[in-house]
């Protein structure tokens, strides 16, 4: 059984390459019993989502002074 600490490593690995079958099964077994790690895993996906928005310059668009929202299409 993986510890929570080990699961956070697997959750990171998962963001970079497909997990091997054994890794995936071990992760799923742990997540069924551990809501904290399930939350951690979702947060990893949130971080990626936020980074993508950031890379697209959406952080800047959140600044009302810099973003004319009546831009003609």
């Amino acid at each position: 059984m993986l510890s929570c600490k080990q699961v956070t490593e697997v959750c990171s690995t998962e963001m970079d390459r497909p997990l091997k079958l054994g890794e995936r099964l071990a992760l799923q077994a742990h997540l069924m019993l551990c809501s904290g790690c399930a939350n951690y895993r979702r947060q990893m996906k949130t971080l990626r989502q936020v980074m993508q928005a950031y890379a697209e310059g959406r952080a800047v668009a959140a600044d009302p002074e810099a973003s004319p929202d009546d831009r003609p299409s």
């Binding site: 510890s3 929570c4 600490k5 080990q6 809501s35 904290g36 790690c37 939350n39 951690y40 979702r42 947060q43 949130t46 989502q49 936020v50 928005a53 950031y54 959406r58 952080a59 959140a62 600044d63 009302p64």
Partner: peptide, 29 residues
């Protein structure tokens, strides 16, 4: 983490708010 590699009390992750909504705010960024 504690010695067994489990989350310490108070450090166990809880669900975050919806990021889409937060991303509209300058404070978030």
């Amino acid at each position: 983490f504690n010695d067994q590699g489990g989350w310490r009390d108070g450090r166990r992750p809880v669900a975050w708010p919806d990021p889409e909504q937060s991303m509209q705010t300058r404070q978030f960024w």
